[in-house]
């Protein structure tokens, strides 16, 4: 579980050390307006959506497990568990932190078909992410999705998204 939850109540560090690293857990999200590196690891069928407002460099990262909160049987589902509700929450959090929703741009990673047993989850997550971003009017500027490979991402202060695949291949989106 990430220590920066949607309520975002963790005190901000004011040390001059290398950029703070904030881990985003599964079904969780985090926003940084202080230059922290947001990381999430072990993306299999899950997707990571990274949003940045280039003017303010305020960034947010979501690690969602399932496409849609529709049909969740619980009364209070965790919004970041789902692509659609997670994206809504992330945009709200970014706006609260001072980002302009109209300037946001998106990068999308993950959605692998890791297992035949559960093959449909990854592609459905990717599809829903594209639909939700389009509906929110947020341009998707880069993506690295699909295949059958796990990925780890680091969302860097300038807005670059460094992706490392399980086979060692690295790229920056």
């Amino acid at each position: 579980m990430s220590h920066l939850t949607p309520s975002g109540d963790r005190p901000v560090s004011d040390r001059d050390d290398p950029p703070r690293r904030v881990k985003v857990g599964v079904g969780d999200l985090a926003v940084s307006s202080d230059g922290a590196v947001l990381t999430t690891s072990g993306l299999g069928s899950c997707v990571a959506i990274a949003l940045v407002d280039p003017a303010t460099e305020i960034r947010g990262l979501l690690h969602a497990m399932l496409p849609s909160a529709d049909g969740d049987e619980r009364r209070t589902p965790r919004p970041a568990k789902y692509v659609d509700s997670g994206l809504d929450t992330l945009v709200d959090e970014l706006e609260t932190s001072g980002a302009s929703p109209g300037r946001l741009e998106a990068r999308l990673v993950g959605g692998a078909e890791m297992l035949d047993l559960t093959a449909a989850v990854g592609p459905r997550n990717v599809e829903r992410a594209r639909e939700s971003l389009a509906a929110a009017g947020i341009p998707l500027v880069a993506s690295d999705v699909g295949d059958a490979v796990g990925r780890t991402v680091r969302f860097l202060p300038g807005g670059d998204l460094a992706v490392r695949a399980a086979d060692g291949f690295e790229r920056t989106l």
Partner: peptide, 27 residues
Amino acid sequence: HSPPEFVHDIGSATVSPLVASLSRRQD
């Protein structure tokens, strides 16, 4: 049980689809 499915990847990426599949019904 089903036939085995071989996996070779980042550990957490391997189990995340299983977690996703169960988590619609349980937290």
